[in-house]
Design a protein around this nucleic acid. Structure first.
Lengths: 196, 196
DNA sequence: TCCTTTACGGGTCACTGTGCCTCGTAATGC
DNA sequence: GCATTACGAGGCACAGTGACCCGTAAAGGA
C-alpha cells in the first residue's frame, strides 16, 4: 500500500495531475461555484464535491483556493482581453477598455481575477502570484504598442499601462458601477491628448 | 435578569456603545492586530481578547470584521489624505498622490482600507460600505477643486478623480511596489497636459 | 436613595471549513 | 501480470463563528 502523501508537488504545481479529468473537473467546478455561490462561500470541500473528486485530490495539486482560481482564470482571461487592432488609436484603446470592463464585471474569469486581487490584499503570497501572472500589464502593453505611433510623447510604458487601465480597474474595484462608455471615451481622448 | 440580545442595533450602528471605553478598545485592538498578525489571521475572538472585551460586546456593535475595520480606518484616513493647498497645481496634485501612496502602503489606516477593498471583492455588502464611505473620491475631489482653475478643460469630475487616483491605487493593489515618485511626477504632468 | 434597566466580561455550545490521514479501488507503465 | 501511483471517500483534530446564558456593574428615573 502507498500513502497519499508521497510524490511530487511540494508547494503547488510540480507535476501535472495524472488524470487530466480531475484537473479539468476541479477548474470547471471553481468557475461554476464562483458564479453560483460567490467567492466567500466557496470552500475546498465544496469544490471537491462539485467536481466529484476527493478532497485530497484537490489539496494534492493546489495548496490554496487562490491557486485554483488563478489557473482557472488564466485559461480564459488572455483571450478575453485580446482585442483586434483598429486603425484609429482612440478606437483601439476604447475597444480594449470596453473589453476590460466587460471582463471584470461579467466574465467568470474576470470575477475570479477580482477575487484574486481581493485575496492579494490579505495574503502576500497571493499578491506575488497575481503580480507574476501580470494579466493586466501584459494585455495593456499589447494595446499600447499599437498606438505608440499615434502618441509620440508617451511616458514610461509602465506608467502608460497604469494610466490606461488604473482608472477603469479602481472604479470597478471600489464602486458598484463601472465607468460608463461615455467616460471611457473621454478618458481615452484625454490620454491621447496627454501623450500627443 | 436581562438577556444580552435585546436593545438597539439591528445591523450595525444604531446607537453608540454605552461605554466609549469598549468602543475605543476594540478599534484600537483592530489597528494593532492588523499590523501585528495581518488581516487574514485577525479573528473576532482575537479582537475581543486583545481589547479585553467580551466577544458578545464586539458582535453587539459591529456585525462583521469589515465594519470594525472601516470605522477604525475612517478615523485616521481623512486626516492623512488631506494635504495643504499649494500654489502650483502640479505640486498640489503630486503632494496628494504622495500622501495617497504613503497612506496605502504604510499607514495602518491605509492597510485597513486595502483590506476592505479586498473584502469588497468577496462580499457585496462590504462593497457598498466602502463605496458609501467614499474615502478616495472625497479626498480626490478636494484636491481637484483646487486645481480646476489651472485646468479649464477638465472632464467630468468623477472621471478626473478616477484618472488621478486610479493608476496609483491599481498599482498598489496589484503589485508589490507602488509607483515611484518619478512616475508620479510624470503622471501629474500628463494629466495637466490633458486637462489644459 | 433605592431599584429598574442596560451593557458588560466571561463561558458554553452547535455548526462549519480546514488540512491531514487512512481506507480500499482503479488506472497506468514496465 | 505486477508493482506503482493517483483516485474517491470518509474520519479526525483543530480553529473561527455567532448565538446563547450567567452573574456583575454601571447608568438613569422615582
Amino acid at each position: 500500500m502507498v500513502s497519499d502523501t508521497d510524490h511530487v508537488p511540494p508547494g503547488g504545481k510540480a507535476g501535472r495531475p495524472r488524470s487530466e479529468r480531475a484537473r479539468r473537473a476541479v477548474l470547471h467546478a471553481v468557475d461554476d461555484l464562483l458564479v453560483d455561490v460567490g467567492y466567500a462561500a466557496m470552500t475546498m470541500k465544496g469544490i471537491a464535491e462539485r467536481a466529484g473528486v476527493g478532497r485530497q485530490t484537490v489539496y494534492r495539486w493546489w495548496s490554496t483556493k487562490a491557486e485554483i482560481l488563478l489557473e482557472a482564470c488564466l485559461v480564459d482571461a488572455e483571450e478575453e482581453l485580446t482585442t483586434p487592432p483598429r486603425p484609429d488609436a482612440a478606437d483601439d484603446l476604447l475597444a480594449y477598455l470596453t473589453a476590460l470592463t466587460e471582463f471584470l464585471t461579467t466574465s467568470p474569469a474576470g470575477l475570479a481575477y477580482r477575487a484574486l486581487i481581493g485575496e492579494a490584499q490579505h495574503d502576500p503570497v497571493v499578491r506575488d502570484l497575481v503580480h507574476q501572472a501580470g494579466l493586466l500589464a501584459l494585455s495593456a502593453h499589447d494595446v499600447l504598442r499599437r498606438v505608440r505611433s499615434s502618441a509620440p510623447n508617451m511616458p514610461d510604458e509602465c506608467l502608460c499601462a497604469a494610466q490606461l487601465t488604473g482608472p477603469v480597474v479602481t472604479q470597478i474595484l471600489t464602486t458598484p458601477e463601472p465607468l460608463p462608455e461615455r467616460l471611457l471615451e473621454a478618458h481615452v481622448a484625454a490620454l491621447l491628448r496627454a501623450w500627443r
